[in-house]
Design a protein around this nucleic acid. Structure first.
Lengths: 338, 338
DNA sequence: TGCGCCGATGTAAACGTTTTCACGCCGACC
DNA sequence: GGTCGGCGTGAAAACGTTTACATCGGCGCA
């Protein structure tokens, strides 16, 4: 059916070995035979079968990417960063999404065995131990934004704690004392790290961490909206600032507060985390913590290539952190004088 | 190194054939041997080598996705739609991006040969003929949003012409007569189709198509900003409405007009095309034409699977169109009385 | 009792490459 | 003038599966 290296060899009147040598430049070939082979290759529009090549070479020139989801700007940015690095190294990307639990990750990963050289796994909602169980033995893996895994496993994470800290600093420097925090899903590693950062920074600033100011959320705009409503209804002494664990929730909160007739930032400051593109366009534009998601992806891929080149010895879990920086826009200002 | 089916066979004291039969349920196996094989498989954490499997089975259980880029929400939505269908069918996705010209597409496609069962190609900036030259012979392919290809090649496109028409209808029904159009890149198939739709709808409404009202653009926010500036500077009789060929440009134009002190939609209506998420958040929120991008991806994948199941006979180029619908928000209103 | 069939298994040949090994040829070197 | 080494080439053995074919025991049926 499809044209193989044998067809080329037959027509060029050489052996398959010679064709292979020509195509891979893996050994010297006489110029005229080389030309003949190339001509036939073009005529037949031959291109080598990837599976066979992978099988023999024991190298797939592809990276596996396992994601929990593909929804929203976050993943497209992440993929773009990964793709950039991969393409540089001449590797393709085998992506698989919608794997929220360890089982799902496990299935995806098994399906990739033998077709990729390494794995990039993002599973913020899977615990480190069950993730370790789902990952294959032989395949170099870099995890993204997951809780620290024991064992020799490289990983890249966002500096969530640092990002939360710098945001709290900013709010405190503006004069805020009562700062509410809107959490993400409790099993999400990013969400918990941001909450940790909030708590630590508040304490460092000498401010009490009032648990009634820590609101439940789920990383969705809808959830942010609801949380803001609850905040307005139930709290007696209102906070002067609301720090949402991600931008989507901050946007939802902005909407809810706006609907309730509040003036942002006059009546309350609202800030987020991530710096998704929408953050620039809402009114008022959202002060937030910028995470260069494409850089996160690129760094992870680069790290994976490094591990691929020189496998890391047992024990030394290689860990990289990408920085998060404050982006000041118009959704926060000094609190009203009491 | 890695554990193979032979290791499993040896430890389970059966032949590799039996192991294969157990794992694929391809032939009856006695219950006790079956259990033994499964136990060893689990113990060794064996999973079959994808490359070898693909090679022998002549089916990769993967789809190739070739994209011009990965930038922005558009591609993440598209991928999500594709992934949904693919996952349903138990297929993985091999993606490759940043292929703007025919050569790039050709390289990407050759690299996929033998590792995918079919191809989803999006290359709006590549002409139909050179695309046809870049595509392989044997591999079933569905093109997305590309100019009609001759030859038996399935494709899915957005109803750009219809979308432009309904938008013009809407503007005309509000009372607009002088409607400017902000073009996309001239080699982009979507962009030219939208321009065609604009022209046709204007004519159908009995309005003159004034070429000074057709502005050059490039699908970027920056480009939309510049075009709006030019519009303000050079045109004598201003249009009462500006129809941008995509939302990114509409947002840029909105910004420029706002900076120039204009009131939208009071002084001029601005509308876009695509309905990217940001469209809801700009002020005023953007009236636009909604394209269900995830549906586009899903339909393309579904079509590819259909072709895979029953290859289409020569000649009958299978073509699908996904609808585009008007979304009315706040960026357009009736024109000021002259 | 013998024939044929079916169920359970093993053997070995594919699948399309890459790569090792061997071979013949030529020029160079002692 | 013979050995040596390198260059160009072909034959064949992998790579890890799946699967066609063969084998063998047991069962139903004439």
């Amino acid at each position: 059916m499809a044209v193989t290296i044998k067809d080329v060899a037959r027509l060029a009147q050489v052996s398959v070995a010679t064709v292979s040598r020509v195509l891979n430049a893996s050994a010297p070939v006489r110029e005229d035979t080389r030309a003949r082979v190339l001509a036939i290759t073009r005529d037949l529009r031959f291109s080598p079968n990837g599976a066979a090549r992978t099988l023999k070479r024991r190298q797939a020139s592809a990276l596996g990417v396992v994601l929990p989801d593909l929804y929203g700007e976050f993943f497209s940015e992440l993929l773009r960063g990964i793709d950039l690095e991969a393409q540089n190294a001449g590797h393709a990307l085998l992506v698989s999404s919608s794997h929220h639990d360890a089982r799902g990750v496990s299935v995806a990963v098994r399906a990739m065995r033998g077709r990729v050289d390494g794995l990039l796994v993002m599973a913020p909602e899977v615990s480190a131990t069950s993730l370790a169980g789902a990952l294959p033995d032989g395949l170099p893996t870099v995890t993204l934004n997951t809780a620290p895994t024991q064992g020799a496993c490289a990983s890249v994470t966002v500096d969530n704690v640092g990002g939360a800290r710098v945001m709290i600093h900013h709010l405190v420097s503006l004069g805020h004392r009562r700062i509410a925090f809107l959490c993400g899903p409790s099993r999400n590693a990013d969400a918990t790290a941001r909450l940790r950062g909030y708590r630590a920074a508040m304490r460092a600033a000498g401010l009490p961490v009032d648990d009634t100011l820590v609101l439940r959320g789920d990383f969705t705009e809808q959830g942010g909206w609801q949380a803001a409503r609850r905040l307005l209804e139930t709290t007696r002494r209102r906070p002067t600032a609301l720090f949402a664990a991600n931008d989507a929730m901050a946007v939802g909160a902005l909407l809810a507060l706006h609907e309730a007739g509040m003036n942002i930032p006059g009546d309350m400051s609202v800030v987020g985390f991530d710096d998704i593109p929408i953050a620039r366009y809402v009114t008022p534009s959202l002060t937030t913590v910028r995470v260069a998601i494409d850089v996160l992806g690129a760094r992870a891929a680069a790290l994976l290539f490094r591990v691929l080149a020189t496998p890391l010895r047992g024990g030394d879990a290689c860990r990289e952190v990408v920085p998060a920086e404050l982006v000041v826009r118009h959704s926060c200002g000094p609190p009203l004088p009491a």
